[in-house]
Computed example of a mutant assay.
Amino acid sequence: MSRFVVTGTDTGIGKTVFAAALAGALGVPYWKPVQAGLDDETDSETVARLAQVPVVPEAYRLSVPASPHLAAAVDGLRIDPDQLMPPTGAVVIEGAGGALVPLSPDLLFADIFARWQIPVIVCARTSLGTINHSLLTIEALRARSVPIHGIAFLGDPMPDSEAIIPQIAGVPRLGRLPFLDQLGPESLAQAFAANFDLADFA
């Protein structure tokens, strides 16, 4: 059964697009536990459009596009970890921002990942700084005994970074999703199929 968590080394690196590609390739539902920011297309709406898979409603929909702990405070809420229970069955779950983004002053996304014990895929951009950010993310997950399925790169080719990070971290390189000039369901599915082996997600 395919159950994965998608996290990133930073915000705005394209992990929602990767999550859409993965969910679409596997033909499984998608879940974003906490959505912060509702003015533009939400991540769930993006995945529904790009992957055309069922989308599980968010546990929290917060109005401000900010770190979830701040967005929740602005809305007069405190995120309850007991409300963040993953759906049963096959699913692709996407966190918000990086692995150490706070949900509250005393709770990080990585803490939730540790509770779930669902294999995590780390999404890393290929631009400058990715080695440090990727290795720190992996160390933070390992410190909490979070199972790491592998690392997926996003962006233009950077062979050295794509080789040295998995080597040092001791995690599988799953592939690299390139930037797409025309992003749509067909182009995304084709790019994923051309750059990833679906057997690696079995």
Score class of each variant (00 low, 15 high):
A194Q: 14
A169C: 08
R176A: 11
R49F: 08
M158I: 09
V64A: 11
G76E: 07
P172H: 03
D197S: 07
S63M: 09
F179Y: 11
R125A: 07
M1C: 05
I165H: 06
W31S: 00
P68C: 08
A96V: 12
Q190V: 10
D181I: 00
A124P: 15
F153L: 10
P81Q: 11
A202K: 02
L183C: 04
R3F: 09
S44K: 00
K15C: 08
I151S: 10
E45A: 07
T137W: 10
V53S: 00
A202H: 03
G150A: 13
G150I: 15
A59E: 01
A193E: 01
A199I: 06
A51C: 01
L108P: 00
Q190S: 07
T42V: 03
P105L: 15
I165K: 05
T137I: 12
D10R: 02
P172T: 08
P105W: 15
L174M: 11
E41K: 04
D39L: 09
F109S: 06
L174A: 07
D111S: 13
L188Y: 08
L180N: 05
I93T: 14
F201V: 02
D200N: 13
F18M: 08
E139M: 10
D111Y: 15
I93Y: 12
P29C: 04
V47S: 00
T130I: 01
F192E: 03
I131R: 13
F153G: 11
E162L: 12
I131E: 08
V55N: 06
V28F: 03
L103K: 03
G12F: 06
V53C: 00
A114I: 04
D156E: 15
R173Q: 02
N132V: 13
S134D: 09
P29W: 11
I118W: 14
D156I: 12
D181Y: 01
V120C: 12
L103H: 06
T16R: 14
G27T: 11
S127M: 10
V6T: 03
I168A: 08
P159I: 04
T137P: 07
L136D: 15
R125Y: 00
V55P: 12
V101K: 01
E139H: 13
W116L: 06
G8S: 13
G12E: 13
E45G: 02
F196L: 00
V34F: 03
P102I: 09
A73R: 14
P185V: 05
D75H: 01
L188C: 04
I93N: 14
A114P: 03
V64R: 11
E186C: 02
E139Q: 14
D43R: 01
M85G: 12
V34S: 10
A59M: 02
H149M: 06
D80V: 05
A202S: 06
L174F: 14
T126Y: 01
Y30G: 03
A202F: 01
R49Y: 09
I148F: 07
T16H: 09
A193Q: 05
I131W: 14
Q83H: 12
A90N: 11
M1Y: 15
Q190K: 09
R3H: 07
V53R: 02
D39M: 08
A71K: 00
